[in-house]
Design a protein around this nucleic acid. Sequence first.
RNA 1: UCCACCAUAGCUCAAUCGGUAGAGCAUCCGGCUGUUAACCGGAGGGUUGUAGGUUCGAGUCCUACUGGUGGAGCCA
Length: 435
Amino acid sequence: MKLARWVYIEDVAEHVGEEIEIKGWMFNKRSSGKIHFLQLRDGTGFIQAIVEKSSVDEETFKKADSLRIESSVIVQGSVREDKRSPYGFEMDVNNIQVVQIPTEDYPISKKEHGIDFLMTNRHLWLRSRRQFHILKIRNEVIRAIREFYHSKKFVLIDTPILTGAIGESAGELFSVKYFDLGRAYLAQTGQLYLEAAAMALGKVFNLGPTFRAEKSKTRRHLTEFWMNEAEMAYYTSDDNMTLQEELVSYVIQKVLERAGEHLAALNRDTTLLEKIEPPFPRISYDEAIKLLQKKGFDIKWGDDIGGDEETGISEEFEKPVMVYNYPRKIKAFYMQPNPENPEVVLCDDMLAPEGYGEIIGASERIYDLDLLIERIKEFNLPVESYDWYIDLRRYGSVPHSGFGMGVERLVAWICKLDHIREAIPFARTIYRIHP
RNA sequence: UCCACCAUAGCUCAAUCGGUAGAGCAUCCGGCUGUUAACCGGAGGGUUGUAGGUUCGAGUCCUACUGGUGGAGCCA
């Protein structure tokens, strides 16, 4: 093959009329005897390449004819604008280099598949158009999260994945053998470590995988998911909520700006997303209970707010809503009591609109040494395994707040997915760890 | 852990009251120079998840098991 410049599909608009080369895969082919329409992708986009019998040599036309779905190919040709193409551009092929032609049928067909089959073939399903767009959006979501913190002068603290002590409560943990030290556990939160780091660096955040061995089987749960946590010294619960709404607004705006074409490809109606900017509505737990009772839910003060109730609250608002100050009995041990009513703690859950439920869990943390120890005992947790965490309250303890945001839940909402397993490249669910 | 549902061709599904297994896509062969999940004609493709039971007869009814899906609880 003669020399031609390698161009990625996303850049073809800058090379109209030029002789270029695309290196990629053929995901579909339509053929009419004397003309082949090769549907190509290269990881950056999609384009149709035309092979006309009258304008290529016989060997090239034969090669095009022999290509099967998911053949890998390098094609040379000239690019032109064409309104008949859904992508706006087409390539007129004059040369084809076959890299590989599969000898077996490609498992993912053009027709519909069941979720079991698709998850079993996740390594191939990733190549599909819809998954391409979702993963591009996830990429922009994570990029925006990092940008947001850096713009606010937060410091990235990578919290450990292998931990000795248990995390926040007696939740189910994955355990692994750890040399002569017994069992280690996969982190279900980095919060305690971020609290330590916040006393050193003021405002800190992490972004990484988190593990929960809970046998949850719902569209909102994974056993391994990505969480972004932040912890800020001297922040009150109100400061905390303000930061959360700024973060979520920033991410949404950046995704609209940089991944609008991918949202469009998913047929995502973005009119509600475009309205996401601070401030978000905030209602107290007390108000939430009254609202739910008025809407006919069988719920009383002191009950936790479940999935249906979350939807009941969030459908009253167009933006995410923050429900704050829950009864202390249904929340974690480390949450700071409300000085005006000690039966309630200073915390908030952010509920995404459109039925997506909780995306952030947040609270102000207890900073008084004696109160923290009292609460650990009250929750029947082993005081000795919280030794270093308690130590933080011995030396220059200050009020501080933080939160955790579920990346897949955020992506699922932004993309309007039915299930968060599509929001992560390789989902881990209770009955699935392969591929 | 609990509740519900599903399992038939490579894939997605159909099969009336229990009566001898069917379609689309995919594959192979042929046709077609503007197809958009291309289309048209032809062909091959089945131990109906596994084990047992009821029945003259089971894809269909019963039991157990296996795998999966959705939900509850818990959470992000």
